[in-house]
């Protein structure tokens, strides 16, 4: 059981979390945030292992990981 929470307003849409995710379940949202960036979001949350790779490469500490 693991989950991540993306702070959509902190995310600058850099996409670095996408190749970092070994499960390939990070994508970019189609809706932009207040700053005009398309934030990252997770699809298929049931596949998340909580490895935190996405959070480790996030330059804006926009991802929190729970296990």
């Amino acid at each position: 059981m693991a989950k991540i929470v993306v702070d959509e307003e902190r995310c600058k849409g850099c996409e670095l979390c996408i190749p970092a995710c070994p499960k390939h379940i990070m994508v970019m949202s189609k809706k932009f945030n207040k700053k005009g960036y398309y934030p990252a979001k997770q699809v298929k949350p049931e596949e998340c292992t909580g490895c935190a790779f996405c959070a480790m490469v996030c330059p804006d500490i926009a991802i929190e990981v729970f296990k």
Partner: peptide, 25 residues
């Protein structure tokens, strides 16, 4: 569930002013 990854206490709440994808953060 317990938080296993989040913002360290030694940082303020201020969002970083760096460009998207910059490694400074």
């Amino acid at each position: 569930m317990k938080k296993v990854f989040g913002r360290p206490k030694s940082l303020t709440k201020d969002p970083f002013t760096y460009c998207p994808g910059c490694h400074h953060g």
